[in-house]
């Protein structure tokens, strides 16, 4: 459905694209102590689409991502001004933080499986949210591992430690772990940068599939990856959002010269 609308929009660019906003930030300022890491950022994340955040190192991509599930709360002296919304609700006021983090899942740059069995890794989230029945957990664990395309590789060793998996497998396990709590939004922070090309390709395929079910927001340093998997891209520079829009459009006809310089590889 979404896809059709989108294609129509491409054929007739004059028609406005009707896409529902899942998350949004408005006039967001974020400070680490005195240092302002995000400056007046306004950006929408359309529902059931993949949005890519790009920009040179230190421009605030991870910071923005962490503002979306309040992982910045862990940072001493971090202050947020402005609105961050999920389905129209202010996440800093109207959504309990643990609910928020269940609904807005996150996969980190470095795979971080817990030092426990593969099964328990996946079951941790559902257990956290009150699912205790073994049969029900079994179903969730299998489904999550299947959705993350790792079931076949681990189905015979569910009780073995997750730390024995390869880096690429660990990252897919972490994706499965995030899926197990049935999130609505998935945040991926350079989640393939520590992986080999084959694992990376597997995860890219997953992300493309996810778009039918989840709203995905991913940080990447890989321009080609952004082109391959995202429909919307936002370019950041020194804490400011320079430009955001349709991915193909932003890469082929950037409006801002700084975006043009970055995507053509002239700096960063």
């Amino acid at each position: 459905m979404m896809q059709e609308i989108k294609q129509d929009a491409r054929i007739a660019p004059s028609l406005p694209v009707i896409s529902e906003t899942k998350m949004g930030v408005e006039e967001l300022d974020l400070f680490y102590g005195e240092f302002q890491a995000l400056k007046d950022v306004t950006l929408d994340f359309p529902k059931n689409e993949v949005t890519a955040l790009i920009g040179p190192s230190g421009c605030g991509k991870s910071t923005l991502l962490k503002a979306l599930n309040r992982m910045n709360d862990l940072v001493d002296g971090c202050r947020v001004d402005g609105l961050v919304s999920l389905d129209g609700d202010d996440i800093y006021r109207d959504v309990p933080v643990n609910d928020l983090r269940r609904r807005v899942g996150m996969v980190f740059q470095q795979p971080n499986p817990f030092p426990m069995s593969i099964y328990d890794n996946i079951a941790f989230g559902p257990r956290t949210h009150g699912i205790k029945g073994k049969a029900e957990l079994d179903v969730i664990v299998e489904q999550s591992l299947r959705d993350a395309a790792i079931w076949d590789e681990v189905k015979d060793r569910l009780k073995k430690s997750a730390l024995g998996l390869s880096g690429g497998q660990q990252q897919r396990l972490c994706i499965a772990r995030a899926l197990a709590v049935q999130p609505e939004v998935l945040l991926l922070d350079e989640s393939t940068s520590a992986l080999d090309p084959i694992s990376t390709a597997k995860i890219e395929d997953l992300v493309v599939e996810f778009a039918s079910k989840y709203t995905v927001i991913m940080v990447t340093h890989n321009m080609l990856q952004a082109l391959r998997v995202s429909t919307k891209t936002a370019f950041f520079l020194l804490g400011e959002m320079v430009e955001a829009g349709d991915t193909d459009e932003l890469f082929t006809h950037p409006k801002d010269s700084r975006t043009a310089d970055y995507v053509s590889g002239r700096f960063g």
Partner: peptide, 21 residues
């Protein structure tokens, strides 16, 4: 630290992250 953060990112309370992870 990534264990602790991973648990919180799944919606666990700080107490649960501490005692279970």
């Amino acid at each position: 630290k990534s264990y602790y953060e991973g648990a919180l990112a799944l919606g666990a309370t700080r107490e649960r992250a501490v005692f279970r992870i």
